[in-house]
Design a binder for these strands. Sequence first.
DNA 1: CTCAATGTATTTAATAATTTGATTCAGTCG
DNA 2: CGACTGAATCAAATTATTAAATACATTGAG
Lengths: 319, 319
Amino acid sequence: MHLSMVFNNSGRKVRQGKIMARSDTRFREAFNHLLDFCATMPAGAELPAEATLSEAAGVSRTVVRRCLTRMADLGIVAWDGRAKHLLRAPLTADRIALPDTSGGRDQLEKRFLDWVLRFDVPADTPLSVAELARTFDVAPHDLKEFLASLSRFGLVARRPRGGWILRGFTKDFAIELSDFRLILELDAIAKVAEAPVDHPVWQRLAELRAAHLALADRIATDFHEFSKLDEAFHEAINSVVRNRFMAESQKVISLIFHYHYMWDKTHEMDRNLAAINEHLAVIDALEARDAPRACEAARQHLRTSKSTLLSSLRHHALG
Amino acid sequence: MHLSMVFNNSGRKVRQGKIMARSDTRFREAFNHLLDFCATMPAGAELPAEATLSEAAGVSRTVVRRCLTRMADLGIVAWDGRAKHLLRAPLTADRIALPDTSGGRDQLEKRFLDWVLRFDVPADTPLSVAELARTFDVAPHDLKEFLASLSRFGLVARRPRGGWILRGFTKDFAIELSDFRLILELDAIAKVAEAPVDHPVWQRLAELRAAHLALADRIATDFHEFSKLDEAFHEAINSVVRNRFMAESQKVISLIFHYHYMWDKTHEMDRNLAAINEHLAVIDALEARDAPRACEAARQHLRTSKSTLLSSLRHHALG
DNA sequence: CTCAATGTATTTAATAATTTGATTCAGTCG
DNA sequence: CGACTGAATCAAATTATTAAATACATTGAG
C-alpha cells in the first residue's frame, strides 16, 4: 500500500503507522497537481525553481519540497539541489488518494438548527460537544467553535462549570425574536418602498405575487408549499437591506421561523391562506409606493406570525 | 515544596514534575473548602459520606475522593472505606495555593476591542491567534473561541486557508453599524415614550438631564467627560428594551462608538456641546411624551454621530 | 435483604503536545 | 551580484493526555 490516508482499527488517522496530528490534504493536492504539471513536460526536462512550482500549485515551498522528495523517492524525478529533471512520465498509480472533503462549514449551521428544532430539544439542555461532534461527524473542536459563534445570538451559552447549554426556544426567546424581526423587517419594508423603479426587487415582487395567487388557487391541496413561499417573500423584502448585521440576524431568524412553520399543523391550510393574503396586501401597498400602508400590512402579518410561533411552542410543550 | 501549581522554566504548568493537560483548580478549591469544613468538627469526629461532602463542596465525588486521599496522606484524616475520621485539626500549611484567577471572560472582549480600535488595526489584517493569546495572556484556544463568537458580527472572519482576519472598521462597516444602531435606537426611543410613569428610566433621564446641563456649564474645561455621558445616555435609552438580540448588538455598538469618540480630536469641544444639546432635545421630547418629536431628535443626533464616526475614520486613515 | 455508601469504569471538557505548512533569513552557486 | 536553495522558526490544525463528572457495579451495616 502506498502513502495514503487510511483509518486503523482505533479509528485514528495514520500514515505509514505514524499518527498524524494534522491532515496533509494540501500536500496531497499539491502532489497530484505537480504530477499533472510534469505530465506536460517531456522526459528528461529540467523542472523550474521551487518558488515557481509553489506558485503554480498555490502552496508554500515547504510543501513543494515535500512533493519533490516523494517524487524523487518514486523515481519520477532526479533531485539534487537546483538540478531537478524529469526521469519518467508520471503514472496514475503515482497519485495520492484524497480524503473525503464533505466538509460543508455553512451546512453545519443548518444541520444543527435542524436538529435542535426537529427533535424539539428543551430549553437549558446540556449540550455534549463530544456527542454532537459524533452525530454531525465533525471534529469536536470545530463544533466548539460553531457553538461559540452561536453564543452571540443567545441560543447557546457556556455553563459556569464548563460545557454548554442550549438556551432553547422558550417563550421569551420567541417573543424577543419576533420583536427583533418586526423591527428589522419594518425597516426593510420602508427601504423597499423607496427603492428605484429599476431595482430588481420589483421584478421579484411581481413574480411572488403571481406565485402567491397561483398557490391560493390550489391551496386545498398544496397548502404545505406555503412555507417555502414565505421564506422567499421575506428574503425578497430583506434583500434591499445591504447591512451585514441585519443580514446575519435575518439568516437565523428565517431559519427558526421556517422550521416552526412546519411544526404547528393545526389549521395549517387556513393559516397559510390568511398569510398569503397578508403577503399580497404588503405587495399591493408596496407597488402603490404607499409606505405607511405597507408598514401597517407588514405589522399585521408579523403579528400573526408571532402568535403562530407562540402557539406552536405551546402545543409543542404540551405534546 | 508541597503539591502546588508552579511554572517550570519552560513556562508549562507542572505538578511534581509531571505536565498537566488540564488545570486542577476545582480540586484545589474543593480541598481548601473541605479543610474549612473539617475545622468546624472536633478531632476524632466521623466525616459524612462522600456524596454529602461532594454536595457541600459543589464538586463531584471524584474530586472529593482525591481530596480525601491527600488528606489521608497528610495525616489529617484516617480513611478506610466508609470509616473516615478526623485525626487532627487542619493547619494553614495544609492548604493548597490557588492559581491566579484573573480570568475575566467578559473583559477579554473589552480588551480586544480596545486593542483593535486604539492601535488602529487596518482592515483585512491577518490575526495570529498565538500572538494575540500571548499579548492578552489567555490560552490560545480561549481566544479562538472568542474570535468565533465575534465572527457573527462580521468583525472577524475565517480565512479560506485557515487563520483569521480582522474585517476591520472600513467605511462600509461604519455605515452599516450606524444604520443598524439607528434602527435599534429609534425603537428604544419609541418604547421609552410609552414607558409608565413609575419606570426607572424617567428617574435616570432626570439625572442625566442634570448631568448634561452641569457639563454644558463647564464644557470649556471638561469637554472630554462627554464620552462617558454619551455612553450613559444611550444605555439609559436602551435599558427599556428587554431583548437579548438587541442588547447583545448594542453592547458592541456602544463600545465601538465610545472608542471612536475618543479618537477624533478635531473640534471636540464644539462637537460635544452640540451633542449635549441634541441629547437634551431628546430628553425634552421624551418627558413631554412626544414620541414623533423624540424620534426626530434622536434621528438628528444619530445622524451627527454617524458623520462623526465616518470623519474620524477618514482622519485616521489619512493620519 | 435492602439500600445507601463505596469502588470502578466510562465519558467529557480542557489543554498540552505534536505535526503540517508558511515564512524568514542566511548561505551558495551560476 | 542576484536568484535559488537549505535550514530554522513560527503559527495553525489536530491529536493526546489529564482532570473531573457521571454511570454502573459492588459491598457492608442495619
